[in-house]
Structure formats: C-alpha cells, structure tokens
Amino acid sequence: MNIVVAIKHIPSIADDLPVKGNNVDFDSVDFVLNEFDEQSIEQAVLVKEAVGGTVTVVGVDVIGELDNVLHLALAKGADKAVKITGDDPAADSHQQAKWLAEAIKGLSPNIVFAGVQASNDLDGQIGPMIAAYLDMPYIGGVSSVEVSDHTATVNKEFAGGFGAKYSVSLPMVVGVQAASKPPRYAPISKVRQVAQMATIEKVAPSGGVSSGLSFKKMAPPVVTGHAEMIGGSSKEVAAKIVELLKSKGLA
C-alpha cells in the first residue's frame, strides 16, 4: 500500500506575528509542523502497521527549512520523504495544492493523508483541492481510518460527538482531524539520528494556478471588546479571581 502524507510547515501562532507588507513577516517567526499533520502522520503510520506498505511524507519547502519536519516525520515512522522546492512563502494554497497534486501523482498513492486544515489558510484547505486536482474523493474531519482491500472506512466528526462512518473505494484523500490513537512521541535523539542518515528526495514544482485573491491587508484584529485585565503577581491574580467569584456567588 502506497501511503502518502502531505505535511505543512506554518508560522507558530504561539509567537508574536509581525506583519510585513500584506502578510505575516515570515523571516521573524518560528515555523512549526501544522498540529493536524502530527495527527495525520500518526494515522498513516497506524494504517501501515495494520496492512503493510510504505509511508511517504511530502511537503512544499516554502522557507527552505522543511527538512526539520520531514526528519520528524521519518522519526515517527514514515519511510520516505519528498520535498517540493517551492521556496516561496507567499505561494497561495491553490498553487501549493497544484504542486502537491503533481508530485503526489508521481508517487501512485493508494491513499493520501492531509491535515484537516492549517491556521494560516485564506483560500481554503489544501486536502480537498489536492483531491479535486487528482480526481479522488475527499472526506475531512476524520478521526479514524481502517483500510482493507481497496476500501477505506473512515469516521468523520460533525459536532458534539455526532459523526458518520463512510466507506470509500481507494484511492482517496483523507483530511485528518485526529488519529485513532494519540500521536507517538519521537525523542530528539531519534530525530537527530534520522537527520544524519536520511535522504530527502527533491522534486521541482510543476503546474501553475492562482487563487484569484488579492490581499488588501493583514493585521491583528481591531479590538472591539477586551477583557478587564487583572494585574499583579500570580498570588494577587488568584486572590482577585477568588474575590470576584465570591462577589458573584460563584465560589
């Protein structure tokens, strides 16, 4: 079974996000693996462990530092890593989806995993776009995947614990919300070891499309309401919260 996982390197939202021109200043933020890709790598490795095959991770190298997350994926059980040498942090989702679709086609996948979304999209998620470009069915919001023969059985979440089970004839693209088990941890020592041994295959970007969006501006939200901030040391904060709760009959 050829299992392909698309992984994305995105600015960490735990950081300050300075703006340069009409976008986040990519030079002054840390890039991290999209949180849902961690889930989707795990789901892919679980499928491999259940039915056999190889897991190939693929990504667009938008800032020239994708190797770090590819190594992480290899340490977590992926077998092969491919990077598309995009090197354009401003490439929109449509463009990246097209590059990915072309690269993934070359890998003859039986099943493709993507994260359900990343927090930095503007023009929609890449998973369904890859599916459209590859003419494969897509289901997102998935929290478990089982594969047998040429069929995948996936659970999709709606809300409040409601969901639906679907069976899909492969190949398909799955948008992973959560793996069926919490992702395994790869110790740094293992990632370092992998980094020394691994070879990463490079693919040139191919195919051009545009999202048709033009940015007017990007800025932190204009604050209409703001919390009343409780200042002081942690002890003082705690005392004020307790006082507040008591005054409202909540403690």
């Binding site: 989702s93 998620q125 776009m129 709606f158």
Partner: peptide, 20 residues
C-alpha cells in the same frame, strides 16, 4: 464539518476563488 469538505474542492474544480 460539511462546508469544509466542499468549499475548497469546488474552488479547485471551477477555478473560482475561495475565501475561508
């Protein structure tokens, strides 16, 4: 959960822009 499966897919199918 429903719109997210279709909006961007439709965008890629039709070549029309999508804002999420």
């Amino acid at each position: 959960a429903m719109g997210m499966d279709i909006a961007a897919w439709l965008s890629a199918r039709t070549g029309k822009p999508c804002v999420a």
